[in-house]
Amino acid sequence: MSAIMMKIRLNYQRVSLSQWGQKLFKSLAMPMLGIAAFLLLWSLAARNIDTSLGQFPGPVAVAEQSVNLWDEHLAEREKAEKFYERQEKRNADRVAKDPGYVPKVRQYTGKETFIDQIFTSLVTVACGFALAMLIAIPGGIATGLSKSLNQAINPLVQLFKPVSPLAWLPLVTMVVSALYVAPDPVVPKSFLNSMITVTLCCLWPTMINTAVGVASIDNDLLNVSRVLRLGALTHVSKIVLPSSVPMIFTGMRLSLGIAWMVLIAAEMLAQNPGLGKFVWDEFQNGSSSSLSRIMVAVLVIGFIGYLLDRGMLAIQRHVSWDKSSTVR
């Protein structure tokens, strides 16, 4: 394997500069061409679609709105800063007049900007995904190790795997409201609702892939473990886990993709202040710029989804011993 990689690298070095330039041109030019064609088609189509909220936004309107959203974010930040400045000054003044006064510090409660909402979404998806992995990987290992456990659990997995987040959400909402009744909640209920919905939907690919990875370990490696009389824990940590790492990561990439997709829908319904709520609010708002703003969100959602996948791939490349499995 590595010999092949070396060969590729050597060949790559042998390629002359002009050829390299050509390669670069090709690798950049084709995607550029694709994007340009898309923009052209988009603007042509947009011109011919009239909605009750005005014309469907073309690329220019969307670009304008993305600048607007950024400006709004900066303006809001400035407002927040000024608020804190005023508060500090006010408190300092009062303390100067009355040394016994304990200054009160209040949080700024302005509206969340688009950028804030992106971060809320990222945090929510990260928590939901992490919780899912905490369940799916050990669960997958257990079902992969035991045939009878797999037979017991597999029908349930197959049953719940295709369930839409929109079906889970009402149930999750009711359960969370019933159980999560702390007087001073650390995280809002809407966050929990979205997060748990994400978890419920993105568990399955990792669980299935882990189980398959664990169940398909090379028989000879299992024999090595038996000859060495490895204990159950060492067996899992030294043989089972490393050998199924490529499969686990394949599952995790699928899971993360699903998590991000599900999150938007969950946030819309749960009113978690993330990208989903942004889209929903803009839709309800119904101003002439709403559609362009939603379109900005669509592009951002897509781009972040892409970055998340690349990120997982990079981690997989770093962690996995099987370099051949990560190319796809």
Binding site: V227, I239, D322
Partner: peptide, 28 residues
Amino acid sequence: EPGPERAVVFQNHSLLPWLTAYENVELA
């Protein structure tokens, strides 16, 4: 049952592919 006092050299080496040669022997 299997045990290390009857070490086996398998036909297709059966080294753990994620460990170096040293680590493979070290594990044993």
